[in-house]
Design a protein around this nucleic acid. Sequence first.
DNA 1: TTGTAAGCGTTATCAC
DNA 2: GTGATAACGCTTACAA
Lengths: 341, 341
Amino acid sequence: MQITLKDIAQQSGYSITTVSRALTGYSDVNAETRQHIQDIATALGYQPNLLARQFRNQRTYTLGLIIPAHDQTFSTGFYSQLMLGIGDAASLEHYDLLISAQAPGEDEMIAYRRIVAGNRVDGMIIARTRRNDERILYLQGRGHPFVVSGRGAPGEPSDYPYIDVDSQMAICTIVQHFVELGHRHIGLILPPEEIAFTGFRHEGYCEGLAAAGIPYRPEYVINGDLWWSGGYECTETLLDDYPMLSAIIACNDLMALGAMNAIQERGLQVGADIAVAGFDDITAAEYAYPPLTTIHQPIYEIGQMLVKLLISIISGATPTETQVLIPSTLMVRASSGIQRI
Amino acid sequence: MQITLKDIAQQSGYSITTVSRALTGYSDVNAETRQHIQDIATALGYQPNLLARQFRNQRTYTLGLIIPAHDQTFSTGFYSQLMLGIGDAASLEHYDLLISAQAPGEDEMIAYRRIVAGNRVDGMIIARTRRNDERILYLQGRGHPFVVSGRGAPGEPSDYPYIDVDSQMAICTIVQHFVELGHRHIGLILPPEEIAFTGFRHEGYCEGLAAAGIPYRPEYVINGDLWWSGGYECTETLLDDYPMLSAIIACNDLMALGAMNAIQERGLQVGADIAVAGFDDITAAEYAYPPLTTIHQPIYEIGQMLVKLLISIISGATPTETQVLIPSTLMVRASSGIQRI
DNA sequence: TTGTAAGCGTTATCAC
DNA sequence: GTGATAACGCTTACAA
């Protein structure tokens, strides 16, 4: 079934060595010999045994990505967009992707050790960084090539190659936008504190308020999980306790959609009564009713950049820019409502 | 850097063979010896070189999936849902995923040959079948384990393991639903003819009309690409030529969302003036305005089933059910409008 | 119970 | 320009 160099060697009368050299484009081989060997290889339908080749070369031309399993956010567009960018770029560079789905925790680290120390990939891509991220520490410790989508929490070193959006500035922009529309009481729904970007988004919120001279009220800020239900429940709590809130910023679109539902179930109108903004600009944001004001990140492009950066590191290059902050864009839609007063 | 069996052998004083046997749980090894060896292995942080192991065993514990690159439908939720189901199930069975993004065409087949004949995976998963699918022919020809999401077009053999939804019945159900609401002029937006399920959905449409005694009008049926713009443009064409249409069925949700926009841009109301239905039940369908009537398929579960089926085939089992048709559910939402007359 | 040795398919080193 | 040979790390007859 499997055609090997040996078969071609026998057929052609040359040695395995010469066959190998002829087929891999090595220079020191007679043109006719090469042609002859190549013809036989095509005739037999030779495909190199990549397992053998990778094993021999200790090079896999494969990038690894461990996605948080059961993480419903995967299905929301963020991960799929990122993966699409990663996949397309990897394909262009002739790399494959090795993907393992593992919920954060012990099994996740086992998967990292298995895949990394088991030599299954040339480099790893880490997404959705966490506070004090064990995965990053592990890869740094081993000196294994990796790049990161996101970065450490505020105050952490982040001394590794990453690409992130400036979410502090982004949230600050939303706050300014709401302030310009006349809002003074703005709620904030943050993700859990172990997510690395939570701190940046919190700071952006504070920064925006400060710039507008609005006092920061910690009771307007609440943590929930990054899923629709998180947004829904946090909004219930916020509106129960602080009915004076006229705007709510959620830290991703899914939470924002949950927030919109909670608002609508109270008989209030999103936009007119309470303005809502999200983060990510997933497909559903545009098609939601009302369409959701949100921060657009170029996720697909970030995926591409991650791959290029990682491959250049694997190839031993010293990329000049290894820590990139991407600007994001505020997409103003109907959930912002209109100018007040 | 890399710890091998050799290192443990030296440390422990045993041979490589014994070390190997001790660590892989082979029975014929002294309990104390095993303990001793295991202790040293943990101390050294031994991780088996999977490349070597896979090469030696010709077994990768990896499933392959080649996704149509640049296929924007990937980002709409269908593929990501499928992949999530596949990834979670694979992880439970201790399999990894090898993914390559390749646009349909020559490069795609090259990737199949490289990955399959290159021994990189134990089995392949094929999604979104096409008429006369070259990928399936290739895998059948090689006798390589694979499973398929979808199946051959009507009339094609489909003599391979697959899991598909009964989309003929599903579209028929939508037609009946619209007929019950009083519609007589129902447009249909089909995907390109090379997609295998196009025929089934077309037949379901005819079947539904026939059951209601409504004559089939081929001019009400149009093909467009499976993307938002496809739905938009087809709807423009249909409404320009046949203003008597009061309902439009699109063959996926994204096309349906495009159709809704085209309708709204004409100053018409979706639901009230023209009813719209889609297929897939992606997240955006529920959050669209108005929420979209569509066919819900259990995509995540299909992904899980595919993996279980494939692994049982790889393991040499003879699964009883290898050709599964999954029922789907009609989700009636506001885009259906209300009863007419 | 443990060790020796062969081999998976490929590439690199060194001769000729 | 070409060929023997060794080696990558692991598993598995077969021998002891």
